[in-house]
């Protein structure tokens, strides 16, 4: 018997499909930027108050904490993980900052705070990387525990920075070069994260691990240390976000960053990162943070009540993600 007697199936297509206009790919690369531009346009049409220097700086200042945490979250998500503990670690950072500045010189106190955040991340990271526990569960536990520690340390009361922390308060309210200092710090963190992710061995392997951990391991790389490291980074950055919030408000409170982890994840996802790992970028995450900030800001300017805002935000996140996945959704048709 030889080849292909005619039958109902005919022969399979052998040539690759012709290169069509790849809407999906294009959108993955520039989609976030497009959403950002559209929102920017809508916002400026919607309210004259939007495109004022004061308002823009305000958005940046308010979202500096979210932005800093989003960098850590991006790294974690690139490895196919998730970190639910960032909001709580930022609260712990805020409280510890207010406590430590009373007794220690400011730089020492701040280093200790960052160290505590990193330590929290190291615990989660160890459990995820080496004991292979699910990141969701581990960081959920850390989320509860860190919030609890913040409450214990502060006795449930906000702690005033007071005179010893005056220098920190100056940072929180300063406008060097006409830009809020916390926003400058956020820019710095994003810039550093961009360089590390795109040009360092560490950044490359983090991305590679998220896309195919086994292939990386079989290239002779200790995957575990890299996975642990991203949680350490995320914890440290969350603590820094806590410092920033404290510097702005002048008090360290255990209620800081309540639910922040969801905003942070939303920002990263709006920025086009894939929760399946391996896909996502620093610039797009930055845009994701800005998009989140602008949406909230427009609705505030338009006088949309807070509860309604949450519903709209949910809808907008879904729309953003649907657009990111447009290629898959279309192909399934």
């Amino acid at each position: 018997m030889t080849d292909n007697a005619a039958g109902y199936g005919q022969s399979v297509t052998r040539e690759a499909a012709p290169r069509r206009f790849q809407f999906g790919k294009l959108f993955r690369q520039f989609g976030t930027f497009a959403i950002f531009l559209i929102l920017l346009g809508l916002a400026s049409l919607q309210s004259d108050a939007f495109l004022t220097e004061r308002n823009i700086m305000n958005i940046l200042r308010q979202h500096a904490g979210t932005g800093i945490m989003a960098v850590g979250m991006l790294y974690v998500i690139l490895t196919r993980g998730i970190d639910l503990s960032v909001g709580s670690i930022s609260a712990l950072g805020a409280v510890v900052t207010a406590v430590l500045v009373q007794d220690y010189p400011l730089p020492v106190a701040l280093l200790m705070v960052v160290g505590i955040g990193a330590a929290c991340g190291a615990v989660s990271g160890f459990l995820v990387a080496f004991l292979r526990l699910p990141a969701f569960v581990v960081t959920l536990a850390m989320m509860t525990a860190a919030r609890g520690m913040a409450l214990i340390l502060s006795n449930g009361q906000p702690i005033m920075l007071g005179e010893p922390g005056a220098a920190l308060s100056v940072f929180g309210t300063a406008f060097p070069l006409g830009v809020p200092a916390p926003a400058l710090l956020m820019f710095g963190v994003f810039a550093l994260a961009f360089i590390v992710l795109n040009f360092s061995r560490f950044g490359r392997l983090v991305k590679a691990i998220g896309s195919n951990e086994e292939a990386v391991r079989l290239s002779g790389i200790s995957v575990g240390w890299y996975v642990m490291a991203v949680y350490v980074i995320s914890g440290a950055l969350a603590a820094i976000a806590g410092i920033v919030v404290t510097s702005r408000s002048g008090v360290g409170s255990a209620s800081v960053g309540d639910g922040a982890e969801l905003d942070v994840i939303a920002a990263v996802v709006i920025g086009g990162a894939s929760l399946m790992g391996g896909r996502g970028g620093v610039l797009n995450t930055f845009l994701g943070v800005l998009i989140l900030g602008i949406i909230g800001n427009i609705m505030n300017l338009a006088g949309v009540p807070g509860y309604h805002q949450q519903v709209y935000l949910g809808v907008i996140i879904v729309v953003a993600v649907v657009l990111q996945h447009a290629s898959h959704i279309l192909r399934r048709r």
Binding site: R204, N212, E214, A215, V216, L218, S219, G220, G278
Partner: peptide, 23 residues
Amino acid sequence: GQGVVLDLAIRKNATMANTGPVT
């Protein structure tokens, strides 16, 4: 599944097991 990281650039796959000389 184990040999290459499909989404990663050819260049990056090629140097993955020995980054010393190129970093």
